[in-house]
Design a protein around this nucleic acid. Structure first.
Lengths: 250, 250
DNA sequence: GTCAATCGTTTGTCCTGACATACTTACTTG
DNA sequence: CAAGTAAGTATGTCAGGACAAACGATTGAC
């Protein structure tokens, strides 16, 4: 009944600049992903593990804790640490449509429909937390895959954060450009809903008027807490859906 | 230019069974939520803070770390720890429609349309990771608020996990019943999409045929990694949307 | 005047040691 | 034989200390 003891070959390189706890966490994560550590199997207890690696218990704990936070391990007092067996891979990320499509093996293309600088409307100003009428950059794009339109992306950014060249926008995703400009994304607030397509939206997305669309509104914040982007996007429901895992925080 | 020093009255109760780091974290979180700790303000450095509280630095660090994980604080080496100023409140939770509606001040009501035990279809078995034909409990419910239908909830659970009485299901939410039965939710995988309502669905939800519906599919796992619930739900797009915050993991 | 090096500050990492608490198992008792 | 009890085991919490690394600002050089 009790799970296997598990003997795992772990090593650490003390001359490496990579933190020791991180080295351990990486090796454990790799062992889990390759199946060497089977779901449900128990890790040796922390003290024994620390002794085997020549590390202190806090360091081993830190390594384990990082994997618990990722949802790969579960610890129980008096029992031990076990590998979770589930399909849950990574908790979730601020998904970028561009990267999502790339990962799915599709070849996303983008065409810039509009790119302008002007005063912020009341709604945009409220979302970005700036004064109404302040200058914002507005970009409207059509994202397609295999020649089929997938979504219409409408973004608003405070001026001065990123230089948005049409060529860059058509070559890659907005988030990549923001990261390249030194913006460190920290968090976002999203709303996902649905509504019927207007005639114009239907024409743009090769759908008929009244066709169901998936809508997504998002405000992203950088590590200083400033709103750096506000987007209102619509997706063809027949071509796209949001998929994500999440962990339940105790 | 440098942000304010901030003087905060923190105390700890060593006779309390509540962990010290947790006490500190709670007080800091409260101070942030009430605005006593303003966005952008700096916490005193860890060593000084520890000395002021009569705690060790690791304990203070643990408190701060928990708030960093929640997205309320940002630490920078050589700079200090600052309060993030953003609307982001809580990272995200496995949201329960019932609790969502309660929190929104609505009074949700539920009527059980169907509740039966039978062999799992191929799709249900695949989602739950059990053998096709194995016994599962199927529950179909209509969730309303203010007398208006909001969603049709269709859930499948392996038999033996929870006793689902119609009276209980109409009095509270499924997740609450599962928790009460000792099931510890750990993670979930969700897919959110949209599609047009069928005639039957429209009639049930007081919408017309072809009206846009928000769809959500979810498989939930407990802390052993076992799938404990599979749900396919449809929501009236005019009455409901998903809203959630998320943190970008570095 | 502008750019580069230096220095102090603050968090990041790691160590040793100790006790508390929860869960499991095995034993004892009614 | 069943239920309660006790021992064992593993994680949870906390202390105190030490050095490393990164960031910001000041100082110095060209």
């Amino acid at each position: 009944m009790s799970t296997t003891p598990v003997n795992l070959a772990l090593t650490v390189d003390r001359s490496s600049p990579v933190p020791l706890y991180f080295q351990v966490a990486q090796q454990l994560e790799h062992a889990i992903e390759t199946g060497r550590l089977e779901p449900g199997s128990r890790l040796g207890n922390e003290i024994e593990l620390a002794g085997r690696l020549g590390l202190s218990r806090p360091t081993v704990r830190q390594a384990i804790q990082s994997l618990v936070d990722k949802g790969l391990l579960v610890r129980r007092r008096g029992v031990g640490t076990q590998v979770v067996h589930s399909q849950v891979k990574r908790p979730l990320e601020l998904s970028s449509l561009y990267d999502d499509l790339l990962a799915a093996g599709q070849r996303p293309t983008t065409s810039v429909l509009r790119s302008a600088t002007g005063p912020a409307s009341a709604a945009v100003a409220a979302a970005l937390g700036i004064a109404e009428g302040a200058e914002v950059v507005t970009v409207e794009r059509l994202r397609s895959a295999h020649g089929e339109p997938i979504a219409r992306l409408l973004n608003h950014l405070p001026v001065g954060l990123v230089r948005l060249e049409t060529a860059d926008l058509e070559a890659t995703g907005l988030y990549r450009l923001m990261r390249a400009a030194g913006i460190i994304l920290h968090s976002a607030r999203q709303t996902v809903g649905a509504r019927a397509a207007t005639a114009a939206e239907g024409a743009l997305l090769s759908e008929s008027e009244g066709a169901p669309l998936l809508t997504m509104e998002r405000v992203s914040f950088d590590d200083h807490g400033r709103a750096v982007e506000y987007g209102t996007h619509i997706y063809r429901a027949t071509r796209y859906s949001f998929e994500f895992s999440l962990l339940v925080r105790p």
